[in-house]
Nucleic acid binder design. Structure first.
Length: 932
DNA sequence: TCGAAGACTTGGTTAAAAAAAT
DNA sequence: ATTTTTTTAACCAAGTCTTCGA
């Protein structure tokens, strides 16, 4: 199964030792921080965690498909071996690994390098219904532009893609994408919105499908309306009310109304009001505002997904795309065309163009400030010191309690954490306090009090809990909204962080330090000129400062008590148009990279042998970022966890393994270990050997460059290009390619499975690596250890749900049961056909004799049930460790997903949850034929 | 040119809510 | 009606990248 590709594995195990913690690492790293000057620390990392080869679940097939390692190796351009054709890759590899398995060796963990097996991937993996069609690719090829032949493509394509075969199959992805995309896409730029106000953009026409279609899909789900409402938040009664409140209260008055409505400019003014029209998803967002209006949610939402009639729907969409866009542009506001037909259209809302005025992010801004955590309530439980109860002042008790409560976390046992805590606590205790030795402290009484409290809360009746919740909501309601340019928008984090002990990740030198309480006098507020200053919620105190800076989007900030030179900002929620706009810009930028990627790759490939060391380092670093999705790697301070990224890799983070494999082993972002062995192009291999020559372990591999130099170079190649754009680009283009190649007709469920698999494939490329690691390991090798043990190795305990195993067992039992029922039914069918009596059932009662046709029908029903069950099982196994929900958030252009949903008539709600729907309102009106 | 600020995105962890099982 | 499991959302640490200022 596993797809892993053994090939490379070989590597070894040195790691074995390592196992224990990921952290290992740093050894070297830390040690030497060679670079004295700036770099002291190094930073960043990316983490690509170790990936194991893909885990493949049960089905071997997948292997290929998924491509385990994405990056692993990249093959040289030409080589694209077998992409698809071959196929069978070798599942075996796993086997090999497994064998080792007894101990947990990292070796196993390592990702195998995948060889080109991709081929195999082929269909096998694919879930039943969906196999990808290999052939398609060819079809796509139509456009020729960029591409070369398929095979070749790989080469050129993004490394990542090419790379390992498996995971991302490069081929598919790339080429297709490129070609098509280009042509069609276009819009992007335009849309880009740069110019237009978000609002305006949003709306566009959503409605493609809309119209009548709606009906059908629904069945699965609820009526659109229903859904919508949820989305909108309106679902929440409270919210709704609140919104009203808003209006009424504060601002409501003025601003609210205005903006939206009027401002919307010309065209759109309609929008807001537009209820009638249907606002589309986009509308949703704003909806909050509108909520009041009652616009029928349904209408707004309509968006497309629901279209029923496939054919019709499709046709509609298809056409529309181009035209639509144009229309949109022309008439921002209107867009009724479709609407008319469908209803769905959105109106456009125009706001002041955000981007417009140089750096100006808003024109008017009102909000109510932030809410503070309640003052500490002493519990009076006495801890013991040297066996005796100790009296503590409330302040002292508060800090002691913070520590006591963390008893069952890993932090409680870490020396750094304890030292920092104790040092800070002693400051609160005062110089002459009797408590002087941590060893003599016994926090157990407080810990037990905490457990009792927790239990008490759990015991509260639902009613009580509800009351409590409502009270809290009521209290917070006014802080939840801001009015930006007349539009009511949700605020993201309006609660000031409560005091506590700092929970830095990895070996953070400051973990355990007391994060002191933040007061109004620590907070700087940002509001529009002339807007009412938020009332300070704590009587007698006042804000540190009130600013009126419309070039930034934060509503308030305070200095981080742990690191005073850092700030903690209060921003609008992800669903706000300000955030939506920049999100869209991010995707447009990475989409733009598509048009430059080939040249950029050629450019760095050429520089692998540049005589100038700096140029060579830039080339290799760019290659790693592109192929392996490494993060840029900024410098870090000494008082942060010692992690690295591409530019800060240390000599000892990289091992050259002849003839052309490079093994990476370092702690990336969040101290997640990236452990991977990759086959690289010969010139890259040679270059890396060269960079390492003559250096000591802790020194920088790329000593001539840093992120600013690297990004400066990237900007020369494409305006606005920076290292992180590669991640977005590779992830999105891959998803786009897979979805276009693999989706076949089938039930909605099957299609969703395709989507999820594609999503997972892409994700593993960039995210959730640690988790993937664990899952891969287990799946692939048939890990003999418990999940907990694996978790320890990986340093991340919650990876796989503890109950996963039992759940799988249960599912298997159910399937078995269904199957035995099937056997019985079939036997009955035979008897019935021969006119024999059916005999007795398990309880000894005689069975009713049915006509063969009736039994046949039952068989069919049962068959469907079994199939669904098995599919559920496969999906579950496959996705058990991957948090698809979170990952969809940052790297995948939502338009890819929305367009896919429209094309395949899958309700978008099946893929995006409520918050994602809110966050991606701006993407809802995308053309069904959109290509990233 | 460079380091420090500053602003914002990314992403793991954890708490809360919702759904499913009992 | 509970309890358990899963999903979603909140929280907040840790990155990236831009801008500022000397």
């Amino acid at each position: 199964m596993a797809v892993v590709n053994p090939t490379n594995l070989a590597i070894d195990d040195d790691d074995d030792d390592t196992p224990i913690s990921f952290k290992r690492t740093s050894n070297s790293t830390k040690t030497a921080r060679p670079t004295p000057s700036k770099h002291e620390g190094s930073s960043g990392g990316n983490g690509a965690p170790v990936r194991i080869p893909k885990p493949v679940s049960p089905n071997p097939q997948k292997n290929g498909a998924t491509g385990a390692s994405r990056p692993l190796h990249m093959k040289p351009p030409s080589s694209s071996p077998n992409h698809r054709p071959s196929g069978s890759g070798q599942p075996n590899s796993l086997a090999q690994h497994s064998s080792k398995a007894n101990s947990i060796d990292m070796s196993k963990l390592k990702r195998p390098l995948v060889k080109d097996e991709r081929s195999d991937d082929s269909d096998d993996e694919v879930p039943i219904g969906l196999r990808r069609k290999v052939e398609e690719k060819k079809l796509k090829g139509v456009d020729t532009r960029v591409q070369k032949t398929d095979d070749s493509d790989d080469d050129d394509k993004p490394l990542g893609l090419k790379i390992n075969s498996s995971r991302m199959s490069s081929n598919r992805v790339n080429k297709p994408v490129l070609q098509r995309t280009v042509p069609k896409v276009e819009q992007p730029d335009e849309d880009s919105d740069d110019d237009k106000p978000l609002a305006s953009r949003l709306p566009s026409n959503a409605g493609p499908k809309s119209g009548g279609d709606v009906s059908e899909d629904s069945e699965d789900e609820k009526p659109l309306a229903a859904r919508f409402s949820k989305v909108a938040g309106s679902g929440n009664p409270k919210i709704a009310s609140s919104s009203k409140g808003l209006t009424s209260d504060t601002n409501g008055q003025q601003s609210l109304g205005k903006r939206p409505l009027d401002n919307s400019n010309q065209t759109s003014s309609a929008l807001k009001k537009a209820k009638p029209s249907n606002v589309s998803a986009s509308a949703i967002v704003r909806r909050e505002i509108k909520t009041d209006d009652n616009t029928p949610l349904a209408q707004r939402l309509k968006m497309g997904e629901s279209s029923k009639g496939k054919s019709s729907a499709k046709s509609v969409f298809k056409k529309s795309p181009a035209s639509v866009k144009k229309d949109i542009k022309k008439m921002k506001g209107k867009g009724k065309l479709k609407k008319n037909m469908k209803n769905s259209q959105f109106s456009k809302i125009m706001k002041v163009p955000p981007g417009s005025g140089g750096g100006k992010k808003w024109t008017t801004l009102e909000h109510n400030g932030v809410i503070f955590p309640p003052p500490y309530k002493p519990h009076g439980v006495k801890m013991l010191y040297n066996g005796k109860p100790i009296d503590l002042t409330p302040e002292q008790e508060e800090v002691a309690t913070m520590f006591a409560v963390m008893k069952d976390t890993d932090y409680a046992a870490k020396p750094t954490f304890i030292d920092n805590f104790f040092t800070d606590w002693r400051k609160v205790l005062g110089k002459n306090h009797i408590i002087k030795n941590f060893e003599l402290c016994d926090f157990t009484p407080i810990y037990e009090w905490h457990l009792r409290e927790k239990e008490r809360k759990k015991q509260m009746t639902t009613e009580e809990k509800k009351t409590l919740r409502e009270d809290k909501l009521k209290q917070e309601e006014k802080y939840m909204w801001a009015v930006v340019d007349g539009v009511k928008e949700k605020v993201g984090n309006f609660r000031v962080e409560p005091p506590g002990l700092f929970r830095g990740r990895g070996e953070h030198p400051k973990m355990g330090k007391l994060k002191r309480r933040i007061l109004p006098s620590d907070i700087t507020i940002n509001i529009g000129k002339g807007a009412p200053v938020p009332e300070c919620p704590i009587p007698g105190e006042s804000w540190k400062e009130v600013k009126h800076d419309n070039t930034v989007t934060w509503l308030a900030f305070w200095n981080d008590p742990i690191n005073p030179k850092d700030f903690k900002y209060v921003f609008l929620a992800a669903s706000s148009s300000l955030k939506g706009q920049s999100d869209k810009e991010k995707y447009e930028k990475s989409r733009k990279l598509k048009g430059h990627i080939q040249r950029i790759r050629e450019n760095y490939t050429k520089d692998f042998k540049n005589k100038d060391v700096t140029r060579r380092q830039i080339a290799v670093a760019t290659y790693l970022i592109d192929k392996l999705a490494l993060r840029a790697g900024n410098e870090k301070d000494d008082d942060e966890a010692d992690t690295v990224g591409c530019c800060t890799l240390k000599v000892d983070n990289v091992t050259c393994m002849p003839p052309n494999q490079i093994q990476f082993d370092f702690l990336g972002k969040d101290s997640i270990r990236y452990f991977n062995t990759v086959e690289v192009e010969e010139l890259v291999y040679k270059a890396i050997e060269g960079f390492r020559a003559g250096k000591k372990p802790g020194q920088d591999l790329f000593d001539k460059i840093d992120t600013s130099r690297l990004n400066a170079h990237l900007k020369d190649l494409m305006p606005g290009l920076t290292a992180k754009v590669f991640r977005t680009y590779n992830a999105s283009i891959t998803l786009d390619g897979i979805l276009h190649e693999e989706t076949e007709d089938g039930t909605v469920l099957e299609k969703i499975a395709v989507y999820q698999r594609a999503n997972k494939e892409v994700l593993s490329f960039t995210i959730g690596e640690n988790q993937l690691l664990v899952s891969s390991f287990i799946l692939t090798l048939g890990c003999p250890f418990s999940y907990t043990q694996v978790a320890i190795i990986c340093n991340h305990q919650r990876s796989v749900s503890k109950s996963h195993e039992s759940q799988m067992t249960r599912m298997n039992e159910k399937i078995d049961e269904l199957k035995s029922q099937m056997e019985e039914l079939k036997a009955d069918l035979n008897k019935a056909k021969k006119g024999k009596p059916l005999g007795y059932d398990s309880e000894g009662k005689p069975k009713r004799n049915l006509a063969p046709e009736a039994i046949q029908k039952k068989v069919a029903t049962l068959e469907g049930k079994i199939e669904k069950m098995e599919m559920d099982k496969r999906i579950k196994e496959d996705l058990k460790t991957v948090a698809l929900g979170t990952s969809k958030i940052n790297y995948l252009d939502p338009r890819i997903t929305v367009a896919w949903c429209k094309r395949h008539e899958v309700p978008i709600e099946k893929i995006f949850n409520k918050s994602l729907l809110a966050k991606f309102v701006w993407a809802m009106d995308v053309d069904p034929e959109f290509r990233f």
